[in-house]
Simulated scan of single mutants.
Amino acid sequence: MELTDYRALLVDCDEVLVDRDSGIWAALQPLLENHSISLSREEVLAEFRHVTQSLYPRFGELGFGGLLCFAHRQLAQRLGLESSWEEGMTFARSAAEWSLFEDAPGAMLYLRKFYRLLVYGDRDSADRDALCERLGIAPEDLLSRSVNPLLDPAWLSANGLKPGHILLVSAPSANPPASADLCLIRRGEAECAQPVNAHFCASSMADLVAQHQLSLRR
């Protein structure tokens, strides 16, 4: 398959379009400051991802903001720090301010000329419309990570798609759903070696655009 053979992209929101890790790191500073934490930025973020993943089975109960709030509290406990519920709620609200990667808006603008763009990610209802506007997508095209649209025949039929029409665009740490071809976005890597489980690999969304332009010329 070539990049030009797909009809839709299912793009992970966080760490592909939105710089989640930088947003989380900044929002964790009130918790971490004035404490002699020996862990590095990457180690703290790895701990945060671990507690988030452990809470995700409760997503239907907690919602996105609740999940972040509980993750903040559990991270504090794992690090031996004190955290109030108010601090956890403030941390959860920071998700609305997470910034887009610099190349994301332009890449989305280009790619929507060739694909149906679907974004895979969760936000509180109060933040969804603003995120969709920033990404240039319709609200119905922001799909929750609690479902797998590729395994939903009714959704696929209603949208005139088959799993083979859709290319997943994901970060290596995102744990994307199965049942479709995969393009990994490995930000920060000058040379992107293609893993065996991926059909395509790019160092950024801008690199994906460049690869698509090359495919058009073939």
Rank of each mutant, 00 (worst) to 15 (best):
H212Q: 05
I185P: 05
V147W: 06
W98R: 00
R58L: 13
A27P: 02
W25Y: 14
M205H: 05
H50G: 00
E191R: 12
A202E: 04
A71D: 00
C13I: 01
I137N: 03
C183H: 06
S125D: 10
G65L: 07
D103I: 05
E42H: 11
G88T: 06
A130S: 15
D141Q: 14
L118Q: 02
Q53N: 14
R20T: 11
M108D: 02
D124T: 09
Q77H: 15
S22N: 14
F101H: 09
F200Q: 01
R78Y: 01
G63C: 08
E140Y: 08
L182Q: 07
V196N: 13
Y115I: 04
L28K: 13
L131Q: 08
E47R: 13
G66I: 03
R134S: 14
G136Q: 05
L208Q: 07
R58E: 15
L142W: 08
A206D: 11
P105C: 04
R58W: 08
L31N: 02
H72W: 12
V169K: 06
L32S: 06
I24W: 07
A206S: 14
Q194A: 14
L28H: 06
F70N: 09
G136S: 04
E61H: 14
D124P: 15
R217V: 03
A202T: 04
L31E: 03
V147H: 11
R217N: 10
F48W: 13
A130C: 06
F59M: 11
G80A: 08
A96D: 01
C13R: 10
E61M: 09
L68M: 12
P176D: 03
C132H: 09
S99A: 13
E140I: 05
P177Q: 00
W98A: 10
A193K: 09
A92V: 04
P57G: 12
W155P: 07
Y115M: 11
A92S: 15
L10H: 04
T4I: 07
V169Y: 03
G65T: 00
D5G: 12
L32M: 01
G80F: 11
I24P: 01
D124K: 11
L156A: 04
V196R: 15
A26M: 09
L150I: 04
N175Y: 09
R116S: 11
D21L: 13
R217Y: 00
S173H: 13
L109A: 15
E43G: 04
I37M: 08
G63D: 01
D129E: 14
L143K: 07
L75T: 06
R49F: 03
E2S: 13
D207K: 06
D129K: 12
I37V: 15
H50C: 11
E87G: 10
R187Q: 01
Y110T: 09
A92D: 01
L168E: 02
A96G: 10
E97T: 15
R112H: 08
A126K: 15
G188V: 03
A71E: 02
R20Q: 15
A95P: 00
S125V: 12
A130R: 13
E33I: 02
G106P: 00
D127W: 08
Q74V: 10
D19F: 09
G63Q: 10
A96T: 09
D152I: 06
N197V: 06
K162S: 12
Q53Y: 05
V119F: 11
S215R: 08
Q77P: 00
